[in-house]
Write a protein that binds this DNA or RNA. Structure first.
Lengths: 199, 199
DNA sequence: TCGATTTATCTAACAGCGTTCGTTGTTTGT
DNA sequence: ACAAACAACGAACGCTGTTAGATAAATCGA
């Protein structure tokens, strides 16, 4: 369908851009999102800090590109999720699967989680266009949750609060462990027991 | 009991220290925790940045003092909570009260919440002594929750995850509103319905 | 293929940051 | 009254994100 190549120069440009982004993730995971300096980042890819401005308008734009990459990865995860009740034989079991995968996605890369769901970079927030990606994903989630019987805006809000809360505690207070993430099945049960008791 | 006064010089010193802390909170609420510069902070209290070092060893030590103040305020809130089952006639109602007060405490000052419960300042985390205050408060919470029938480490962990999750979403995605905080009673019901169904 | 033009990268600099040092007045204790 | 302790300062250091101007390399049109 789409021709990605273009001129050799465009190709090289895209390669360098990707290389910078990779290095930015690498340094962020090593030193923390807010502790990446453009001079360090440049050194990592064999450039001076000022040369990075040929690829990103500002440091904020770099964070924005990383945010967009993270959103794409999350969208890729969500793409595998069921789209209708017809695909689900055991809603409770399916819901546990969804929840577990989401929490795993978040905890397997805390830096990515912080960029996507927290505001850990002083003065930075995603651009409106990039934030729109995040909003679209919540709409997807609404559909997905409806397919396992969790319906209504409030239920979706509580679901997200519960899962991000678990993820947050896990990353902040027991990194690498499972003190909170192992509570996910129980948390899902809380939802379904209530659904059964008062529908 | 305790004589706070001391020499006039000590008094003045404590006053200035308190003044700096107040200004730090004020600027943090206005510009964000990570966006406070020592030069701005000094200007706010009629000093130069370097003079602040007579009162705090470093900017990190300033954050630490703020963290301790926030913990004290939270401890003051927790001091009003019931200490034994004998004080509680309606556990579910009491639990809703506790949860609502905690969420209100967090949302009424998002800056304080971020300092206490999130890691929004690059490279900073509370000193071990200050963090010990936070740990002690979780132990308190354990006792308090037991008094309303929520027992066991896992239940306490899930409780904190749920409430901080709600608070987080509230502050990040609907500041000043109640889209998530109004879900607190329902969230508490989730706990108690499950307690009743399988004790 | 040569000249013109665009592109990539560099160096140098600026203002602001947290922090340290040495100095200068002011307050305290004897 | 004099020495010691203290409070505040200005200047500087090395770091940060960012901009401007120079320079070398790649591309395009003739």
């Amino acid at each position: 369908m789409s021709e990605i190549a273009g001129t050799p120069r465009d190709r090289r440009r895209r390669e360098t851009t990707a290389e910078i982004l990779e290095a930015a993730w690498r340094l962020s995971r090593r030193d923390g999102l807010g502790s990446v300096s453009l001079r360090d980042l440049g050194r990592e890819v064999g450039l001076r800090a000022s040369s990075l401005y040929a690829y990103f308008d500002s440091k904020a734009a770099l964070y924005d590109a990383m945010f967009r990459q993270g959103q794409e990865q999350l969208a890729a995860l969500a793409a595998e999720w069921p789209r209708s009740l017809a695909d689900v034989d055991d809603p409770r079991r399916t819901a546990k699967e969804l929840a577990a995968r989401f929490v795993a996605f978040c905890t397997e890369d805390p830096t990515r989680y912080q960029l996507l769901f927290q505001r850990v970079i002083p003065g930075w927030e995603p651009s409106p266009e990039s934030y729109a990606l995040a909003v679209a994903r919540v709409d997807e989630l609404r559909v997905t949750l409806a397919s396992v019987g969790i319906e209504g805006d409030e239920a979706v809000d509580l679901w997200t609060a519960l899962l991000t809360g678990i993820t947050d505690q896990q990353i902040s207070n027991d990194p690498g462990g499972d003190r909170w993430s192992r509570l996910v099945p129980w948390a899902v049960d809380l939802f379904f027991d209530q659904l059964r008791s008062e529908p």
